[in-house]
């Protein structure tokens, strides 16, 4: 089994090539109707993988959209109930992040049990300023504390909607490490958890030998 750490970024646009996309092994594009880069996965150095993006305002809309959905599914919702329902669904892999997303204590705990990844993105901070950014930073500090406390799988991403919202991995991780330290979270634990989740997502999407955690095809 290869132990090399892999780094994944989630974006909301069809990423082609950017000098700001640096230090990642894979970008997952969560965008409505995105499926044009599927063939790039095995060929290019900075691989791009199409994710299935579901945006829902209520539970019935979520259920309806999930019925047809396939692939690596990410759900984005401003409603706590919808996010909790999404976490309980077997099909959902990621709870996506935006400045409108709301999560509660129970959802974070549940996500740890159900092995659903929680995304924490940088772009939400770039789109707001002042009081709203202050509130977001405070919420994110608390979220990071809970994620580490419960061992919930999480990943920090750029969450970029355009090229200029992308940031190199070093810069992104440096910012979130600072925030985690500020929240009183053990930085090493935080980074290790981050690396593990990121590597697992990468292997799940790209590694042909990977089946589930602990089960893989041995080559040779």
């Amino acid at each position: 089994m290869s132990c090399k750490s892999r780094y994944v970024d989630f974006v909301r646009f069809s990423l082609k090539q950017s000098e700001l996309f640096e230090g990642y092994d894979l970008a997952v594009c969560f965008q409505n109707g995105f499926q044009n880069c599927f063939n790039d996965v095995k060929n290019s150095q900075n691989t791009v993988y199409p994710g299935t993006f579901i945006e829902a305002d209520n539970v019935s809309e979520l259920k309806k959209k999930l019925r047809r959905a396939r692939g690596f599914i990410g759900v984005l919702s401003p409603d706590v109930k919808v996010n909790r329902e999404a976490i309980m669904r077997k099909k959902v892999h990621v709870i996506l992040d935006s400045e409108r997303r709301k999560l509660d204590y129970a959802s974070v705990k549940l996500a740890a049990e159900k092995d659903v990844v929680i995304e924490v993105s940088l772009s939400k901070f770039l789109r707001v300023k002042g009081f709203k950014r202050m509130k977001l930073l405070d919420e994110t500090r608390l979220l990071l504390r809970l994620l580490v406390k419960f061992g919930t799988p999480f990943v920090v991403t750029s969450g970029a909607e355009n090229e200029l919202e992308l940031r190199p991995r070093y810069q992104l991780y440096s910012f979130f490490s600072l925030l985690a330290r500020d929240a009183g979270v053990d930085e090493l634990k935080f980074l290790e958890s981050l690396r593990n989740t990121s590597t697992r997502i990468y292997r799940r999407l790209v590694d042909e030998n990977y089946i589930i955690d602990g089960v893989e095809i041995e080559s040779g």
Partner: peptide
């Protein structure tokens, strides 16, 4: 240093142009 890198990360506009600062 980390404070400055974070502040650089948050620079999104210079003049009237949208930019990103890469460390």
């Amino acid at each position: 240093v980390e404070f400055v890198i974070a502040a650089l990360t948050f620079v999104t506009e210079l003049g009237n142009e949208r930019v990103a600062v890469k460390t």
